[in-house]
Amino acid sequence: MNSLVIEGSPKTPSINFDGANGAFLIEGRSIPENSLDFYKPVMEWLDSYINEPQEETNVTIKLEYFNTSSSKCILDVFKKLEAIFKRGKKVIINWHYEIDDEDMLEAGEDYQSIVKIPFTMIEDDE
């Protein structure tokens, strides 16, 4: 399985999905005006990955900001991964938030309440 790499910009996160090792990273800011456009290639790549997933997929989310239109796209990413989790593959989501950023912790808890994949909440010191 190939990898998906999208360089970050001031309004879009960097994406690094390593298909061979099942190590996925979304990092930075996700505040584009039209999130559907940005996440379309991500969803398409995930559609292929879930057909031949690794035994273990480790997802790291390290977002500084995300807007509400991205929030639905991020949920869609998790829902795609939930499909392989339900088929018995191991999937873990590591949700990072900066120290004292309760809003970002709560955002992680929102996803945790909707998606069945186990979440690990990780507080980062700056």
Partner: peptide, 30 residues
Amino acid sequence: TRNLYRIILNNEQFSEKGGGGLGMVEIARK
């Protein structure tokens, strides 16, 4: 407000302008 946010987040709808219908709820929540 938090519960409403979660419900709308999970309703799988996007408005024609690409907004998720969550903006106002997010503003109130934050």
